[in-house]
Write a protein that binds this DNA or RNA. Structure first.
Lengths: 149, 149
DNA sequence: CTCGTTGCAAAATGTTTGCAATGTA
DNA sequence: TACATTGCAAACATTTTGCAACGAG
């Protein structure tokens, strides 16, 4: 039994919630990839696997996954809310290209300690560090295009 | 003439856009505070000042302000999209309490240099550093409540 | 005078919720 | 069996857009 399943099961039990096929399917789909995803993508993934769960259920489930600490929202602007799993995924930072939307991940490195200390200095128990660097990727070293909507 | 107005005017000219009362009102309202705001709040602020601009116009204007580099989206999860002005606002980090929603700002400090180096290492021209530390504030040193929707 | 801009209302999204049927512990 | 869960459709909240009237350069 994979570790994350145990974690989720314990979380459900502790909160008087039930382990259902829909929830298990969603959980597996979420951990089947290291990519970011939104609820719609999760919905598609399940259908592609021949599984089923309504969007409503997935929206409800993703909240549980976040509450359990297994998943977090990706701290990046965008149309839809995107998520990523955390388990086995060390704290990292995102490099976002404001031109083409390219996204790169890397480790926090030296910054991590400094940030944790800042949190501590204010008396906060820090559970999550979200860092995104927005700028222009090497490929887009050009100029911006049209600005109008 | 305030610096940010000059910047916005140049931005408009460069893109063949026009300087209108609505846009100027929005710009001033945005820079009148250092708080985060969403479009609805901006709308209220204008009305309170006896100025007027439709929500549609404000949504259109805020995009221009972001494109001009004067304003950015706040990289924090939430119901509505929130913004903050950047001009005269040094790079900083946000401490977010996942219990009560409290929000604290602080300087990046030592982390800034480390993060910039990471960007450089990947060949990115970094324009913006967004950091949020999510956790539990001192006041909320308690336990979580009900998890269910 | 030419084109960008505005407001309104309608449309489009993304997400939540009430409710009756269903399933888990 | 008791109560949590699901799907559906309706409700919501936010943001975008078409269009005709208006306004800046």
């Amino acid at each position: 039994m994979e570790e994350y399943k145990v974690i989720f099961e314990k979380f459900l039990q502790k909160n008087g919630l039930r382990l259902t096929p829909s929830r298990m399917s969603a959980l597996e789909a979420v951990f089947a990839t290291h990519d970011h995803f939104d609820v719609e993508a999760l919905y598609d993934t399940l259908r592609r696997r021949g599984l089923r769960a309504s969007r409503a259920t997935l929206y409800r489930t993703i909240h549980l996954l976040v509450a359990s600490g297994l998943v977090r929202q990706v701290p990046i602007q965008g149309e839809t809310t995107r998520y990523e799993h955390i388990w086995g995924h060390p704290r990292h930072l995102h490099l976002v290209c404001t031109e083409c939307g390219a996204l790169l991940e890397d480790e926090l490195g030296a910054a991590e300690q400094a940030l944790l200390e800042t949190g501590m200095r204010h008396g906060w128990r820090v559970n999550e560090i979200a860092v995104s660097l927005r700028g222009v990727c090497p490929k887009c070293g050009k100029e911006a295009n049209d600005v109008r909507a």
